[in-house]
Amino acid sequence: MKQRVALFVTCLVDLMRPRIGFAAIQALEAAGREVVVPEGQTCCGQPALNTGDRGHAEALAKQTIAALEPYEAVVLPSGSCAGTICCHYPELFEHDPEWLPRAQAVAGRTFEIMAYLDEVCGWRPDSVSLSASATYHDNCSGLRELGIKAQPRRLLKAIDGLSLTQLPGEETCCGFGGTFCVKYPAISNAIVGEKAEAIEATGADLLLAGDLGCLMNMAGKLHRAGSKVRAYHAIELIAGMGDGPAIGEEA
């Protein structure tokens, strides 16, 4: 019997770039999983959590836990949202005897998509090919909360024809920071400006990352600066959807 996994698409993917969600489904199915998309999902509550709005953060965490707990595995195409569920939900309910075990149970079964494909499924996109050069930015939450570093690179290296160029400062924050980028736009701009220059300097055709928030920030800056670099979520390439429109390109 096929193992069932629940996909939590995240609010940004849901509204801004659904093809990341479809790419996730395609890759998971290629890896032999049956994918379910739970109905009750909206936002994991990360914006509320990071703004200090604990009441709403708890309410959204409870809603998300309730939507996800029936499944044996939960997968997200976002390091920061997966980090919220895995690391911060248990912290939120540290003193709540009813919700803590439920939060911990879901946290223990939740994975970032590329870590899941690589580590749990041991799968590689062997039949995918794309002739391009790409550079990869490590999004901070995925890197530091979940240890996502080698997994996306292992998957991307299996794509025939794709060459990866290392991004200098690949582990340096892009300046997105959720609401940070609108609360302190000038500082955020200075940070992402340097990031865009570093990306441009690699000479790569494509910018890849594992978090749509960071990608929109970097792609938006690159576009404003007139760069030709095209941005994708890494899972789009891994799922064989790297030939479609990049972020900000018309379908």
């Binding site: 698409v9 993917v13 849901d14 509204l15 801004m16 770039r17 659904p18 093809r19 969600g21 479809f22 980028c181 609108v182 609360k183 302190y184 736009p185 000038a186 955020s188 701009n189 992402v192 400006g193 929109m216 920030n217 792609a219 938006g220 800056k221 576009h223 404003r224 972020i247 900000g248």
Partner: peptide, 16 residues
């Protein structure tokens, strides 16, 4: 704060 310094990609016509 966003669009002063960068462009925002257009949202999808229909949600995921």
């Amino acid at each position: 704060g966003w669009t002063r310094y960068r462009d925002m990609p257009k949202p999808a016509p229909r949600s995921f």
